[in-house]
C-alpha cells in the first residue's frame, strides 16, 4: 500500500505546524519519523489518520483521498496507536477485540475472535488473554495496544512513540516483534521516534522533520552527523559499535533548541482540546 501526502498544511490556532509537507511511503516500508519536539511528528501522524483534518493539502491512500473515506474505512486501512493512551477497564482479549470494531456490524463473528486469538499469539499475549489490562506491566500493556491495531488488519501501522515508556529490554523486544509481525503480514509502518538509535536499527527509511517541513528522506545508512546536528541542534558522533550504527551526542549548542519544551507543552494543550 502506498500512503502519500500532498502539500499538507496544518496550524494550531494560527501557528503552522506542518507547512506544505509532501511525502510518499511505499508498501511494506518501516519509516521512522524523526525531529525535535514540536517539529510536527505527531501532527503528521494524526493527519495521516484523519484524526486531524489538514487545512490545506491531501492525504492519499492508494490514490484515494482520505477525506472521501468513512472513519471505519480508514480504520480498516490504517492502524493508529496514539501516544496518549488510557488504560481501559477491559480484559486483554476484549481490549484487542476493539480492533475489530471497524469490521463488526452488530455482533463479533467467529472470524473476529479468530483474528484476535491469532494476534494475541503473535504478540505473545495468549497467556494474559483473560487478565485485566490495568493489571499488566507497561511493556505488556503496550503490546496490547499494538495487538489491537494489528487486529484491525490494517495495511499500514501508524505508531506514535511506541517505545517511549518502556525499559531497554521491552523497547528492543517490542521493535523486534513489530518487525517480525510486519514482515509476516506484509504491512508497513510509519513510526514517530525520539530514539535515533532505535530508528537506525529497526527502520528501513527515515524522514527528518524540521519546522513543519521535510529536511531529508534517506536510508539509515545515509544519515550523517551533520544532518542530525542540523535537525536536533546537537553535535553528535555516529559510530559503528558491535555491528550497529549508534549516535553519541556531544554538548548541546548554546542557543535553545527551536520548538523546544514550551512549544511542545503548548501544542499538547491545544491538541487535547481539539478532541
Amino acid at each position: 500500500m502506498t500512503l502519500e501526502t500532498r502539500g499538507l498544511h496544518f496550524s494550531y490556532n494560527g501557528r503552522p505546524v506542518l507547512a506544505g509537507l509532501s511525502l510518499s511511503l511505499a508498501r511494506g516500508e518501516s519509516v521512522g519519523i524523526l525531529g525535535v519536539n514540536g517539529a510536527g511528528k505527531s501532527t503528521l501522524l494524526r493527519c495521516l489518520n484523519r484524526n486531524l483534518k489538514p487545512q490545506k493539502g491531501a492525504v492519499l491512500v492508494e490514490g484515494r483521498n482520505l477525506a472521501d473515506l468513512s472513519g471505519e474505512e480508514i480504520a480498516r486501512l490504517l492502524g493508529y496507536v496514539p501516544q496518549n493512551r488510557f488504560t481501559d477497564p477491559l480484559n486483554v482479549f476484549d481490549s484487542v477485540l476493539l480492533g475489530r470494531k471497524p469490521h463488526i456490524k452488530w455482533q463479533a463473528s467467529g472470524r473476529d475472535l479468530q483474528v484476535v486469538a491469532e494476534v494475541l499469539a503473535q504478540m505473545g499475549l495468549e497467556k494474559l488473554a483473560m487478565r485485566p489490562v490495568a493489571s499488566l506491566s507497561g511493556g505488556e500493556a503496550q503490546k496490547v495496544v499494538i495487538a489491537r491495531a494489528l487486529a484491525q488488519e490494517p495495511r499500514m501501522l501508524l505508531l506514535d512513540e511506541p517505545t517511549s515508556n518502556l525499559d531497554l529490554r521491552n523497547q528492543l523486544e517490542l521493535m523486534r516483534l513489530l518487525g517480525r509481525v510486519m514482515k509476516d503480514k506484509g504491512i508497513g509502518a510509519a513510526v514517530c521516534l525520539h530514539d535515533i538509535n532505535l530508528a537506525l536499527r529497526y527502520m528501513t527509511r527515515l524522514v527528518l522533520l524540521k519546522e513543519g517541513g521535510i529536511k531529508a528522506i534517506l536510508t539509515p545508512e545515509q544519515l550523517s552527523p551533520e544532518l542530525i546536528s542540523e535537525v536536533y541542534g546537537v553535535e553528535v558522533i555516529l559510530a559503528q559499535v558491535a555491528g550497529h550504527r549508534v549516535v553519541i551526542p556531544q554538548e548541546a549548542r548554546g542557543e535553545p533548541a527551536e520548538g523546544g519544551l514550551d512549544a511542545k507543552l503548548d501544542r499538547e494543550t491545544v491538541g487535547h482540546d481539539s478532541n
Binding site: 472513519g71 493508529y80 496514539p82 480492533g99 495496544v145 489491537r148
Partner: peptide
C-alpha cells in the same frame, strides 16, 4: 474507554 485518539483511530 481507550481514549479519544484511539477511538477516533478505530473509526
Amino acid at each position: 474507554l481507550a481514549g479519544d485518539d484511539s477511538a477516533q483511530g478505530l473509526g
